[in-house]
């Protein structure tokens, strides 16, 4: 018992050491932790509320009182960006959670049972994959009529087909391994084999895909909000802020530049973190 525990610990240590060797990945992790803290403590950090309007100071350029200036309604852009972290992060994480969970079930069933079940499921997935995921999301969000909830549904449904495909391939590769055979011999139930034996073995791929999915989710959410199908005013989503600032881009470019930088850095950090995780899970893939 003790030996296995220390073995597990050293495995984790090795993993952690490999991860730390990638400086960009460590930067990614630090930035993610930072932005999560910012999102959690937004009311304490932000100097103003996200919907505190003051028309007398509308469209003031960045100064000591309003670090990132104010928008067309006199709201503080800096505070809105801090609150925006809440919306963007939670949308990114929750859509990925929904889509990954659904895709896990679909991919698991398809990959594990194979044969006709797999054929039927994958042909349906193929049809969905013919529509680019963001276009599918736009179509679904347009049907449901905008707002955060419809954006969540649209983004998760857009992401499910691609991820199911990926998980199915992983499960299929695992199914041919001996430990699955062994589990079948012990008369373990299919459910038990799928989630108790196979799942831990595809966990690394699952985690990496999840991380990258969050980055993609934030990007796509900002796009939906930008075209008016996501967060509705006055909710400060970064993409929605970009969209509101667009009309003033000629004279007040900071309204567009700052939220865009925020989206890019966050997505960049998450991608770097994901890359680092993948390399640490599988050192053979390093540098690819």
């Amino acid at each position: 018992m003790n030996a296995s525990k220390s073995g597990r610990k050293s495995q984790f240590k090795l993993f952690f050491r490999r991860f730390c060797r990638n400086k960009l990945a460590v930067f990614g992790l630090i930035f993610i932790v930072f932005i999560i803290l910012v999102a959690l403590f937004a009311p304490f950090i932000a100097p103003y509320g996200y919907d505190d309007q003051n028309v007398s100071i509308r469209l003031t350029k960045p100064n000591s009182e309003h670090w990132f200036g104010t928008d067309d309604l006199g709201r503080d852009v800096f505070s809105r960006m801090i609150y925006g972290a809440r919306v963007s992060l939670s949308v990114g994480i929750s859509t990925t959670a929904i889509s990954m969970f659904t895709a896990l079930i679909i991919g698991m069933i398809s990959g594990y049972y194979g044969g006709r079940t797999d054929n039927i499921i994958m042909r349906i997935v193929d049809v969905f994959l013919a529509i680019p995921s963001i276009l599918l999301s736009i179509a679904i969000a347009a049907t449901l009529g905008g707002g955060i909830v419809s954006m969540l549904i649209a983004l998760s449904m857009g992401a499910i087909p691609g991820v199911s495909r990926l998980i199915r391939a992983q499960v299929m590769a695992e199914c041919h391994k001996e430990y699955v055979e062994a589990a079948k011999v012990t008369r373990a139930s299919d459910f038990r084999i799928m989630f108790k034996y196979i799942f831990p073995n595809i966990l690394s791929v699952f985690i990496v895909t999840f991380t990258m999915g969050v980055a993609g989710g934030i990007l796509n959410a900002s796009m939906l909000s930008f075209i008016g199908l996501g967060a509705q005013p006055p909710i400060p989503e970064w993409g929605a802020m970009l969209s509101e600032g667009r009309a003033y881009i000629r004279d007040y470019p900071y309204l567009v530049t700052y939220p865009g930088i925020m989206i890019s850095i966050t997505v960049f950090a998450i991608n770097m973190f994901g890359d680092g995780l993948r390399d640490a899970f599988d050192p053979k893939l390093k540098g690819r």
Partner: peptide, 22 residues
């Protein structure tokens, strides 16, 4: 590659139009 990958394409479009057109 990682920078352009992280940028939303509509934001890149806005910034390009800001720099090269405006």
């Amino acid at each position: 590659a990682v920078i352009f990958h992280a940028m939303p394409n509509f934001w890149l479009a806005l910034e390009l139009s800001l720099i090269f057109a405006l």
